[in-house]
C-alpha cells in the first residue's frame, strides 16, 4: 500500500541538472504528485524553467497558479518570484511574502506547509545547493512523520544544502543522485494510467 501522496523537492545551485535527472527517471505512471521549489533569478518571461524540465520528463510539468489542485502524476513548479505553499484539501497557494533565506520561492516555505498539510504522506527531497534553505522544512517533515531524502553530498554539484539538511534534520535516506528516482518510485508506487488525470 502506498502512503506517500506528495513529493516536495528543493534545489538551488546546480539544481536544474539534478532535477532533470530525477524527473527523467520517474515513470509515466508515477503514483504521487510532485512539487518543486528551485532557486533562481526573476525570470523575464513565464515558465521558462517548467518548459525546460518538461522536455526531460515523462510527467506533465506545470507552473503553479494560485489554488491549483495538487494532481497525482504531475510536476508542479513554484513560479519565479512567488512562494509556493501546500494547503489542506489538496490545493496549492502562492504568496508574495518577503524572501526567506534570500529566496523566493523558498524551500522551507514549501516543505513546512507540506508537512502541516500532508504529515506522514509527504516525502521531502533536498538536492544540490549552496545555502541552508530547506533544512528547517525537512526537519518539520520528519517531525510530522514524513519521509526525508537527501542527495548524497558527494554526488551534489554543491554540497552545502544537503549537508545543512542532514545536520539539522537528519534523513531517512541519503542516496546518490541517480538513486533518487528509483527510491521515489518505490516510496510512492505506480498508478495504472487509467486512474490518473492526464492533461
Amino acid at each position: 500500500m502506498t502512503t506517500h501522496e506528495l513529493v516536495v523537492m528543493g534545489a538551488s545551485w546546480g539544481g536544474l541538472a539534478a532535477l532533470g535527472l530525477v524527473l527523467s527517471g520517474l515513470p509515466r505512471d508515477f503514483g504521487a504528485a510532485i512539487a518543486v521549489a528551485q532557486h533562481r533569478g526573476v525570470e523575464p518571461a513565464d515558465a521558462v524553467l517548467a518548459d525546460a524540465l518538461a522536455r526531460k520528463s515523462a510527467l506533465p510539468v506545470r507552473e503553479v497558479h494560485d489554488k491549483d489542485p495538487i494532481v497525482p502524476g504531475w510536476v508542479h513548479m513554484a513560479p519565479s518570484d512567488y512562494h509556493l505553499l501546500v494547503e489542506r484539501g489538496g490545493t496549492f497557494a502562492l504568496s508574495t511574502d518577503p524572501r526567506e533565506q534570500y529566496s523566493r520561492p523558498s524551500i522551507d516555505v514549501l516543505f513546512e506547509s507540506a508537512a502541516d498539510a500532508y504529515a506522514s504522506r509527504v516525502v521531502g527531497v533536498i538536492l544540490t545547493g549552496a545555502n541552508p534553505d530547506g533544512a528547517a522544512g525537512l526537519a518539520r517533515i520528519r517531525r510530522r512523520g514524513g519521509f526525508a531524502v537527501v542527495q548524497d553530498p558527494a554526488t551534489a554539484d554543491r554540497a552545502a544544502m544537503p549537508e545543512a539538511a542532514m545536520a539539522r534534520a537528519g534523513a531517512d535516506e541519503v542516496v546518490a543522485l541517480s538513486e533518487i528516482a528509483p527510491l521515489l518510485t518505490r516510496l510512492c508506487g505506480r498508478v495504472p494510467a487509467t486512474e490518473q488525470a492526464r492533461p
Binding site: 512562494h83 505553499l85 501546500v86 494547503e87 489542506r88 497557494a93 504568496s95 511574502d97 516555505v109 513546512e112 506547509s113 502541516d116 498539510a117
Partner: peptide, 9 residues
C-alpha cells in the same frame, strides 16, 4: 485565509 502563509505570519 490560506493557512500556510497565515501560520508563518
Amino acid at each position: 485565509y490560506s493557512r500556510g502563509s497565515l501560520r508563518r505570519r
